[in-house]
Design a protein around this nucleic acid. Structure first.
Lengths: 233, 233
DNA sequence: CGAGAGCTTGATGAATGTCAAGGCTAGTGG
DNA sequence: CCACTAGCCTTGACATTCATCAAGCTCTCG
């Protein structure tokens, strides 16, 4: 179930847009606001979008965490990426109306909605925004490449450390609080499915990090003690 | 060492562009030709671009195979994707002037060259081409996601089968010959480094495919006997 | 208070990596 | 034309990482 309610904030003042993919001029922000068709609320652990459905709306996460994933025969699941406040769900919709993956909320989520084709036209007509979209597309590819290297050529220990470091870094870039203990809604299952491990093995790796005094992740709270150790991976 | 020589072909007639990322009108093809600054020849097994260097030129593969890769400490290598005739090296250059990966030729290569910033302007001014570039960017992401699923959640046997099938499919889409035996310049090392395996294990998997009568890959020649078996993976 | 979800732990096994040796092939220089 | 060499592939024995299975534990929430 999704809930509609008025957001008290205009796009021009939105703290998310300041760190979102389009860091833009004031007037384009105002234009965006007219483009915004509303907003929605999703509870935690809900499927927000199912692979292959027609999506007429683009969503922009205002608050909460989510992830993109794909299901395989045999109950296998691969998480493709995590989405934080300010992230779009998702850019490919600028050119395509069906996505080749599903999206699920991790926490409860507030998202701004935009009409897909209006938004696409808007982007096409604003060179600067189009350019930012390209940049964001390229950086998405770069991080997909990084994840590929993780899965192909790094140990479970390195993968888990790097994933956590990446997410904390993104949280900081978005101005989300990262002092110990910080809000960090991934369970072992999510870490495992993102990194090609079993949740049991992910748990073993986390225990090792705890024993070594590097970090501790427990029930949605992360404490990061030795960031340098993670960076070394 | 790279060699410059005249290509006998205009962009408007180029058999590669017909299947490249921009399937475009005649007049834009003519415009592209004026944009083309020349072409280059690289021998096989040469590093064409090294991660982090400034690239002032965009290359378009006219003939030959290459791959994008990254080197890690400890001699580990991850191949990110393979590049076939008609593929650009590479689109991210539209927005960035340094790439976060290296490129190496598999066979000897002929490539058309374009000035990076001229090309970027050209794309920005032609809506249709910009759109095609977006589409191509999205499809690159989709296939990166697929590869992620391979590495995260599929067995070595499935991975190898799917990689070979993907490449053969791409060859067909480009009009490259795919009758048995076909030209297929990947060694076991390349397959292994693309799929997060050791070359020894990749060899074991290939032997199994041969034993089962599905395919046979030997010294640059591929014979595909049972494509349906591969599709089932 | 009870039930369920997610985490922990240990025992076992399968998939894949590592090491070491040998073989085929193409290309090279005598 | 014949060694010779280098690169790549093959093979087998063994080690390691990670998955699987099964059980018990601890919160949270109804």
């Amino acid at each position: 179930m999704t809930v509609m309610s008025a957001l008290p904030i205009s796009c021009a003042q939105c703290p998310r847009l300041k760190t979102a993919f389009y860091r833009s001029e004031h007037e384009t922000l105002v234009a965006m606001e007219q483009l915004r068709s509303g907003h929605r609320h999703f509870p935690a652990k809900r499927t927000i979008y199912r692979e292959g459905e027609i999506a007429s709306e683009m969503l922009m996460i205002f608050d909460g965490w989510a992830f993109r994933y794909k299901l395989l025969p045999g109950g296998r699941r691969q998480i493709l990426s995590f989405l934080l406040p300010g992230d779009p769900i998702c850019l490919p919709l600028l050119t395509v109306d069906r996505l080749p993956f599903s999206v699920q909320s991790l926490t409860s989520i507030t998202a701004c909605t935009f009409d897909r084709s209006c938004f696409a036209n808007f982007v096409a007509e604003h060179r600067q925004i189009a350019f930012q979209a390209d940049v964001s597309c390229v950086s998405a590819q770069t991080s997909a490449d990084e994840r590929l290297i993780d899965l192909g050529r790094r140990s479970a220990y390195e993968r888990v450390g790097r994933l956590i470091l990446e997410l904390v870094t993104r949280m900081e870039a978005k101005g989300l609080p990262t002092s110990n203990p910080m809000f960090f809604p991934l369970g072992q299952t999510h870490i495992a499915d993102a990194l090609g491990l079993t949740s049991i093995h992910a748990g073993r790796v986390l225990r090792r990090f705890r024993r070594e005094g590097v970090l501790s992740l427990h029930r949605g709270r992360l404490e990061l003690f030795d960031r340098a150790a993670l960076r070394r991976l």
